[in-house]
């Protein structure tokens, strides 16, 4: 499983990608992933609205995750 970060999420995490090895415990759903992010990076609490893509498809909180998924964390961006 790998997680890609865009926009302010990339700045919060300080990296554009996190890789989970096969042995590591992985979040089971999108909701669990968001919870993990907030636990590790409390600044995610401020982002009320955050789009998550699982294998390039928009994913609601109840979507389940599996080992080979590619996930993208996409916050709103405002610049113009």
């Amino acid at each position: 499983m790998n997680v890609l970060f865009f926009g302010i999420a990339k700045d919060i995490v300080g990296s554009s990608e996190i890789l989970f090895s096969d042995e590591e415990a992985k979040p089971a759903t999108v909701a669990a992933l968001k919870k993990d992010l907030i636990k590790n990076y409390p600044e995610f609490l401020k982002l009320k609205t955050l789009a998550v893509a699982v294998n390039s498809e928009y994913a609601n909180d109840d979507v389940t995750l599996s080992g080979n998924d590619e996930i993208a964390i996409i916050p709103p961006v405002s610049g113009g």
Binding site: G7, P76, V77, G79
Partner: peptide
């Protein structure tokens, strides 16, 4: 929309 080196 833009953020730094990124866009949507």
């Amino acid at each position: 929309a833009l953020h730094g080196f990124e866009g949507q």
